[in-house]
Design a protein around this nucleic acid. Structure first.
Length: 613
RNA sequence: GGAGCCGUGGUGUAGUCAGGUUAACACGCCGGCCUGUCAAGCCGGAGAUCGCGGGUUCAAAUCCCGUCGGUUCCGCCA
């Protein structure tokens, strides 16, 4: 990251200032800018300009003093020469890093041998006539410069300084552009942006709620929304046809690099649609977004996998398909094997599955041992590696394998000399092991993929999953997800076999978001609640308002929601959503800047009729 | 709830494994010199009870126990 101009803003700033005269304006002792620092070019030579900004660096040569003045658009060098303006030079002597200045001067071409090719403004400089200190600054606790080698707590404690760095400014500019283009696109497709409550009602299912006590009704609580799900469905009942919102959501769960307690969703819902309508529109939206914001053409439509296929081929419902390394089932080859590990797994109804490691050729024993260790760490009983070695295979299992088995493996996997196949035997738990190993291999061995952004739809998720702890079925997505049409007959009999009209969008192995067609038939909704173990009374108590609304002519509808933070994180090439959120929280949910969360005054508790336990 | 890693002048790190002089280096900061630098340069200076508490030891940044904070992951969470 350099002090390049923020290309995202460049055009906007240029337009803003076009047509302005070069004259400066007085306003209470400091002069308002006529130009942004980072926009000055040789075409401005000869102009008198006024700049407002922060001192990035000061280089004092005893005679001449150079100031790099920074604003949102970038840097420009201001030259304070005592022979040109003794006043400006005298003022510049007092100046320190991060002082806020107003500088008036004339743009001139730099002497040829002092052009700075590393700066967009490097061909010009401003000869200062007047330098006004608008505000001084303490020495900042860390240096305001590209890159962020500073401890994160300190950055967060002084976030307003951290946000002065170009990395952060660029990330937040990108974020602003993304939300702007989402709005542009959706509004052009007849979506209405409608806000929904932040103080709302707690709902069962899903994540732990954040809760806000009610003063007017002591002992009662609002919950902050985990998503605007129910409201957007009510908006469909209301006939708005197409809704969207850049919505803040709250979930009181443990944090991760890609999870904050409050986060932002691009949330939308449409009436009279099938999955196809939603997915193809979203293909268009992302194509528009990446084209307009990043100048990247995405190949659309995005490829699709059913959940079943994804699990079979990648062992996960959010595959990063840039790495190849698809899994195959090799069970057929080992039906009669003497190799006990495989045979006993097969006899128990398990399978032998595995994949060829991309980018690994004739590895050292140490690397293979590393793979086995990783497999164990992921919970596998073991891992069998096989390396093509001439006509045969090098493998710990080699001596137990027959010639047809060996040949079969080589053929089925298309193993070439020195290539490595990993095999594991077992049941469904293999998915976690193999997909974990696949990521491990991707990071370590696979060649860098050509594709920067790899989107995949994953569809037809199971409707329910079994919660062992609570001994009941739970919704895989949420309780309003419509079962696939073909599953309606056996919902109650074989719930785990039922799939739903659902779809997730995966980008580079990150779950960007997901949605579904919703149930619009109150009777079917009741059946699903029944399977979830929600009694008529509970359902009425929790979602009665929705069920009631559904008695007044709900349209078929469906929608989707995307994690804006994750999207921007990937577009900006960052490793954590904290890097694309202006004021994020630490892993323990605190904000070192404000000190939140904090105790409140006893009076506040008394007013709410609350007492700590 | 669990596991790993990190915590040393303002900042980033070295030193910790193998305890032992005055805790080192770079950046920043302060002062001086310096009219073309842009990682300015040169000279000088200040600045750290090594996250906190306890223990072992003649001696602890270093070893042990606990604790706090940060971070990554599992659980949890769409």
């Amino acid at each position: 990251m350099e002090w390049a101009p923020l290309s995202l803003l460049e055009e906007r700033i240029t337009n803003l200032l076009r047509g302005r005269t070069g004259r400066t304006m007085k306003d209470g002792g400091w002069e308002k800018r006529t130009h942004y620092c980072g926009t000055l070019r040789t075409s401005d030579v000869g102009r008198e300009v006024v700049l407002n900004g922060w001192v990035q660096t000061r280089r004092d040569h005893g005679g001449v003093i150079f100031l790099d003045l920074r604003d949102i658009s970038g840097l420009v060098q201001v030259v304070c020469n005592p022979e040109v303006s003794p006043e400006a030079h005298a003022a510049a002597r007092q100046v320190r890093s991060e002082y806020v200045l107003s500088c008036r001067g004339v743009v001139r071409a730099r002497p040829e041998d002092s052009v700075n090719p590393r700066l967009p403004t490097g061909e010009v400089e401003v000869m200062a006539e007047k330098v006004t200190v608008i505000n001084s600054s303490l020495t900042p606790p860390f240096e305001i410069e590209p890159g962020s080698g500073v401890e994160e707590t300190l950055r967060l404690r002084y976030r307003y300084l951290d946000l002065r760095r170009p990395d952060m400014q660029e990330a937040l500019l990108l974020r602003s552009r993304v939300t702007q283009e989402v709005r542009n696109f959706l509004i052009s497709r007849n979506f209405l942006e409608i806000e929904t409550p932040i103080l709302t009602k707690s709902t069962p299912e899903g994540a732990r709620d954040f809760v806000a006590p009610s003063r007017l009704q002591p002992g009662k609580f609002y919950a902050l929304p985990q998503s605007p799900q129910l409201f957007k469905q009510l908006l469909m009942v209301a006939g708005f046809d197409r809704y969207f919102q850049i919505a803040r959501c709250f979930r009181d769960e443990d944090l991760r690099a890609d999870r904050q307690p409050e986060f932002t969703q691009i949330d939308l819902e449409m009436s009279f649609v099938e999955p196809e309508d939603v997915m193809s529109l979203m293909d268009e939206m992302f194509a528009h977004l990446f084209r307009s914001v990043l100048g990247v053409e995405l190949p659309v439509p995005f490829p699709r996998l059913t959940w079943r296929e994804a699990m079979e081929r990648y062992g996960t419902d959010r595959p990063d398909r840039r790495w190849g390394m698809e899994m195959q089932d090799y069970s057929r080859l080992f039906r009669e094997t003497e190799f006990k590990v495989f045979r006993s797994a097969l006899e128990k109804g398990g399978r032998v599955r595995g994949f060829k490691v991309a980018g690994m050729r004739s590895p050292a024993r140490r690397e293979l041992d590393g793979l086995v260790d990783e497999a164990r760490r992921l919970g596998a009983g073991g891992l069998v590696w096989m390396v093509r070695d001439g006509e045969g295979l090098k493998s710990p299992a080699a001596k137990f394998l027959s010639l047809p088995e060996t040949e079969g493996v080589v053929r089925a996997a298309g193993l070439e000399e020195g290539e490595v196949l990993l095999l594991a035997a077992g049941g469904e738990e293999l998915n976690a092991v193999l997909s974990g190993l696949r990521s491990y291999c991707a990071q370590r061995y696979a060649p860098r993929p050509d594709e920067r952004f790899s989107f995949t739809w994953v569809t037809d998720f199971p409707l329910f999953e079994w919660d062992e702890e609570e001994r009941r079925y739970k919704s895989n997505h949420h309780p309003f997800t419509a079962p696939s049409a073909g599953c309606l007959e056996y919902l109650e009999e074989r719930p785990l076999e039922a799939t739903s009209d659902s779809y997730d969008l995966v980008l580079n192995g990150v779950e960007l978001g997901g949605g579904s067609i919703r149930i619009h038939d109150p009777e079917l909704q009741r059946r699903v609640f029944g399977i979830l173990g929600l009694s008529e009374e509970e359902a009425a108590e929790k979602f009665g308002f929705l069920l009631e609304a559904f008695r007044y002519g709900p349209p078929p509808h469906g929608g989707i929601a995307f994690g804006l933070d994750r999207l921007v994180m990937i577009m900006a090439g960052r490793e954590s959503i904290r890097e694309v959120i202006a004021f994020p929280k630490t892993q323990s949910g605190s904000d070192p800047l404000t000190g939140a969360p904090d105790v409140v005054y006893p009076e506040q508790l008394r007013e709410l009729r609350l007492r700590p336990i």
